[in-house]
Nucleic acid binder design. Structure first.
Lengths: 343, 343
DNA sequence: TCCGGGCATGACAACGTTGTCCGGGACCGG
DNA sequence: CCGGTCCCGGACAACGTTGTCATGCCCGGA
C-alpha cells in the first residue's frame, strides 16, 4: 500500500530519454529504439534500458513524439452546449466509441450555447492540432473555421447546420417530426394544439416550429400564434405559460414540446393536475414510458447522430474528398398513450 | 457562403511561423513576438505579420509551444465507466466547470468497467502529459499510477477508492445511505426487505450491501440472504429476480436498489402491476418524482462529487503537499411517498 | 592479411515554438 | 561629429522525441 500525495520528492521533473540514457549508459537513440520496439538492440542493452526506465518511472512524452513525427495528435475535439446534458452525453458516448475504433480520444467541451465561447473552444482545439472537430453549432457564423478546415482540420456539424459554411452536417428530420406530432394529435380530434419551443434563434427550435405550422396546415388545424410559446423557458416561466395556454374560451387541449428539457419542465409543472392535456414531446427520454400517463414522443437515435458524424469525420481524415454531405436522420413517432387522449 | 470539405487544396501542410516569417519578410522571432503580443515590434511590421498570418491561416501549434515552455498541457484526464451514463456526465460537467475556471480542458474516456482499459487510458493520458487525472476506479490495483504520481501527475479518485494506493479520494456515504433506507422502510412496518445491488466486486455495491446489513441490524429486521440479489443485472434477469423475491410464504414487501440503473430496471419490470412493493433507490434520477408512485431515493450531489475532486486536484497542482485526503460526501433520504406504503 | 558485410550503437538534425542574447540603426545631447 | 541609449529585429539554442546516416566491431572468405 503506497501513500501518495504531493508529499515525497517535491514535484520532480519528469524523466526524459536523456535521463534514462545516462542511467543506462547508452545513447538517447538507443533508448528510443527500446521504447519503440525497434530491432537492432542487443538484449542485454535493452534490459539495462528497461531497468533504467523502470527505476526513473520514465514515460515517453507523446506531445514531443507527435511533434517530431508529424503524426496526428490522436484527439478529436467535440464542442457542444453542455456535456452534462444526457442528450449530449449520449452523443459523446457514440463519438467516443467510433473514435476509439480509430485509435483516438475525445476532447469535449461545453459552449453553453454561447457562439463566442464555441468559437474560442473550436479554435483552441485547432491550435492543439486535434485531428478533427465535431461541433454542435451555437451560433450562425462559422467562417472562422474556414482557414482551419483549409489547413486540414476537418469539421463536421451535428444537430444543427453551420451558419455560413457548407460542410459535412448531420441533422435529424425536425420538420417531419413535428408534422407527424401534429397529425397524430389531430387524428385524435385535437383542434387546439399548442407548441412550446426553445429559443427561436436555435436552428432546431425554428425548424420544429416550421414543422408545427406545416403540420397544422396539413392536418387542417388552425395555426394560432397565441398557442405558440418559444423559449428560453425555465420552471417558473413554464407554469405561467401553461396557465395562459390552458385557460380561456378556447384553451389548448394538446401540447407539442420542442425538446426533452421542455417536456420535463411541462411534466413537472402539470404534475398532480387532474387531467393533463395530450402531449407529444420532441426527443425521447428515459422513463418517458413510466411517467403517468406515459409520454408520446418524437424519438430519434442520438447515438446514430454521434456515430454518423464521427464516421463522416474519419472518412475525411482517411482522405475522402467528396463534396460536403448533409445527412438527415429519420425520426419516429413513439406513441405511448398520452396522445390518444381525445380532445 | 464557403463550401468546404476535403476538396480544394489537398490537405495542405499547416503554415508555421517560418512560413509566416518568409511571407512577411521578417524573422521567425518577430512572428512569435506578434503572436504573443510581446512589445518591441514596430506597428508597421506587426501589421505585415498579421496580414501574412491571416493569408496563410496560421495558428500557432500549442503542443510545440507547451513543449518549449515546459508549461502544462492545459488538460486534465478523466477516466470513468461510461461517458454516456447521465450519472457520469453530470460528474464530467462539474469537473469541466472547475477545470474551466483554472483554464484547462477535460479529456474524458470510458473504461467500460474494465481495469485493463482503465490502466491503459490513464497511462496514455500521463504520456500525453495531462496536468492531472481524475479516476473512477474500475479495478482494485492502482500501483501503476505510483510512478506517474511521483513524477508529478496528481490523481484523485472519485466514487470509489483506489485499490492499493492511498491518495486523494472523494466518496459518498454509501453505508449511511443504505442504513437510512432500511430504517426508513422499517419505520413503516416493513420486515421483509430485499436488496438488489450491483456486482459485489464494485466498491460502492459492496459498501451499500454492508450498509443494508447494518441497517437491518439497527432496525431490528432479520437479514435474510435469500432477499439479496447482487448483479450484474439486466432487463430479463431482473424480472426473474423480482418474481423470486416477491413470491413465496414470506415475500419481500419492500425493495432497496443499489444504483440508478437498477432502480430503473426494477421500475420497468414492475410497471403495470397493481401494487408495487415499497421502493427506495440509491442515487436520485430525473423524473423520480414523476413516475407513479414517485420513488423515494437516497440522493447525493453528483456535481459536488466532481467539483470536490477537481478542486482537490487543482489544489495539488497549486502545490498543496498535505497528506492525502479522503472526503466523504453526505447523502440525503428524499422521501417521495413510495416508501411510506405500509407493509 | 585484407576486405566486405552485418550488427549494435551513436551523432546529429529536425519537428514548431520561445527564451536569451546580440547587432545595427535612429536619435539625442554635448 | 562622437558616444550613449533606445528600439527593432534576428541568430541561435533548447524543449523531448525520432529519422537519417555514420561509425566501430566482429566475422567469414579470399
Amino acid at each position: 500500500m503506497t501513500t501518495l500525495s504531493g508529499t515525497g520528492p517535491r514535484r520532480v521533473r519528469r524523466a526524459t530519454m536523456s535521463d534514462v540514457a545516462r542511467l543506462a549508459g547508452v545513447s538517447i537513440k538507443t533508448v528510443s529504439r527500446v521504447v519503440n520496439d525497434e530491432p537492432g538492440v542487443h538484449q542485454a542493452t535493452a534490459e539495462r534500458v528497461l531497468a533504467a526506465i523502470d527505476q526513473l518511472g520514465f514515460r515517453r512524452n507523446l506531445s514531443a513524439r507527435n511533434l517530431r513525427r508529424g503524426s496526428s495528435a490522436g484527439i478529436v475535439g467535440l464542442v457542444m452546449e453542455d456535456v452534462a446534458n444526457p442528450f449530449y452525453s449520449e452523443l459523446t458516448g457514440a463519438v467516443e466509441e467510433v473514435a476509439r475504433q480509430h485509435g483516438r480520444h475525445v476532447l469535449a467541451a461545453s459552449s453553453g450555447e454561447d457562439p463566442d465561447r464555441e468559437r474560442e473552444l473550436a479554435l483552441e482545439f485547432c491550435a492543439r492540432r486535434v485531428d478533427g472537430l465535431i461541433v454542435v453549432p451555437a451560433g450562425v457564423q462559422h467562417g472562422y473555421l474556414v482557414p482551419e478546415m483549409r489547413a486540414g482540420t476537418p469539421a463536421v456539424f451535428v444537430d444543427r447546420p453551420a451558419g455560413d459554411v457548407v460542410a459535412d452536417t448531420v441533422l435529424v428530420d425536425n420538420i417531419g417530426g413535428t408534422v407527424a406530432a401534429v397529425q397524430h394529435l389531430a387524428r385524435y380530434g385535437h383542434r387546439r394544439i399548442a407548441f412550446l419551443g426553445d429559443a427561436p434563434d436555435i436552428f432546431t427550435a425554428a425548424e420544429r416550429l416550421r414543422g408545427f405550422r406545416e403540420g397544422c396546415a396539413r392536418a387542417g388545424v388552425r395555426y394560432d400564434e397565441d398557442l405558440v410559446a418559444m423559449g428560453p423557458h425555465d420552471a417558473p416561466g413554464i407554469g405561467a405559460t401553461l396557465r395562459r395556454l390552458l385557460r380561456g374560451p378556447e384553451p389548448a387541449t394538446a401540447l407539442v414540446t420542442g425538446n426533452n428539457r421542455i417536456t420535463v419542465l411541462v411534466l413537472r409543472a402539470l404534475a398532480g393536475q387532474r387531467d393533463r392535456p395530450a402531449l407529444v414531446g420532441f426527443d425521447d427520454f428515459e422513463l418517458a414510458d413510466l411517467v403517468n400517463p406515459p409520454v408520446t414522443v418524437i424519438a430519434h437515435d442520438v447515438a446514430a447522430l454521434g456515430r454518423t458524424a464521427a464516421e463522416l469525420l474519419f472518412a475525411r481524415l482517411d482522405g475522402d474528398g467528396a463534396p460536403p454531405r448533409r445527412v438527415v436522420l429519420p425520426v419516429r413517432l413513439v406513441t405511448r398513450g398520452s396522445g390518444e387522449v381525445p380532445a
